[in-house]
C-alpha cells in the first residue's frame, strides 16, 4: 500500500524525450520536448448540500386565487417575445397580487422566465428584466420592495412546450 502510494506520486510524471532520427534526413527538425507532468486525477467530488426552500402551499393557493375566480392564474403574468413590458392583462393580475400582499404579511419571490428561442445567457438577463418588471409594478402599487425578491431562470424552467406560456413572471410565496 505504502509502496503503491509512493509510486502514484513518483510515477505520475511523464517524461518525453526526442528519439533521434533512425535514418539521416537533413530535413528533420530538432524537436525538444520538456517533461510533461500529469496533474493528479481529481478526487471524487463532494457537493454541498442544497437547502430545500419549501413553499407554504396554503399561502401559495391563496395567492393563486387572489384574483377571485378559481380558473384564473393569479400568480402568473405573460410577456411578448423578447419583451418585458407589463401589458394590460398583466397589470390586472399584478394589481390583485399587490392587494393580496397588502392584506397578507408574507414575502414573495418573483421568477422571470423565457421561451427557448434564444441563447441561455441572454435569456438569463431577459428573465431578470421580466422579474424586475413585475417587482417594479408591485412596488408602484404600494408593496414594499424589501418584501420582494427576484430570480431569473432564463429558459431553464419551462412550464410546457408552448413558447408563449413560457415567457412569464411567476410570483410565489417565499
Amino acid at each position: 500500500m505504502l509502496k503503491n502510494k509512493f509510486y502514484a506520486k513518483f510515477l505520475i510524471m511523464i517524461g518525453a524525450v526526442l528519439i533521434l532520427s533512425a535514418c539521416s534526413n537533413s530535413g528533420d527538425e530538432a524537436m525538444t520536448e520538456t517533461p510533461t507532468p500529469v496533474e493528479q486525477t481529481p478526487e471524487p467530488v463532494s457537493t454541498p448540500e442544497p437547502m430545500a426552500a419549501p413553499v407554504d402551499m396554503v399561502s401559495q393557493e391563496s395567492l393563486n386565487s387572489s384574483m377571485g375566480g378559481s380558473m384564473s392564474e393569479g400568480d402568473m403574468v405573460y410577456f411578448a417575445y423578447d419583451r418585458y413590458d407589463v401589458d394590460a392583462s398583466a397589470r390586472s393580475v399584478l394589481g390583485a397580487q399587490a392587494n393580496w400582499m397588502k392584506a397578507n404579511n408574507v414575502n414573495v419571490i418573483v421568477e422571470g422566465h423565457c421561451d427557448e428561442r434564444g441563447t441561455r445567457e441572454y435569456n438569463i438577463a431577459l428573465g431578470d428584466r421580466r422579474a424586475n418588471a413585475v417587482k417594479n409594478y408591485l412596488v408602484a402599487m404600494g408593496v414594499s420592495a424589501s418584501r420582494i425578491r427576484t430570480v431569473s431562470y432564463g429558459k431553464e424552467r419551462p412550464q410546457g412546450t408552448d413558447n408563449a406560456q413560457n415567457r412569464r413572471g411567476y410570483t410565489r410565496v417565499n
Binding site: L11, I12, I14, G15, A16, L18, S21, C23, D28
Partner: peptide
C-alpha cells in the same frame, strides 16, 4: 513517400496514464 522519419518521441509514465500518452 520520402522514406524518412519526420519526428519521434519517447515517454515514460505510470501504466494507468497510457491514455494520456496516446493523446500526447
Amino acid at each position: 513517400l520520402g522514406g524518412s522519419q519526420m519526428t519521434g518521441l519517447r515517454y515514460f509514465t505510470a501504466p494507468q496514464n497510457w491514455r494520456r500518452i496516446a493523446h500526447l
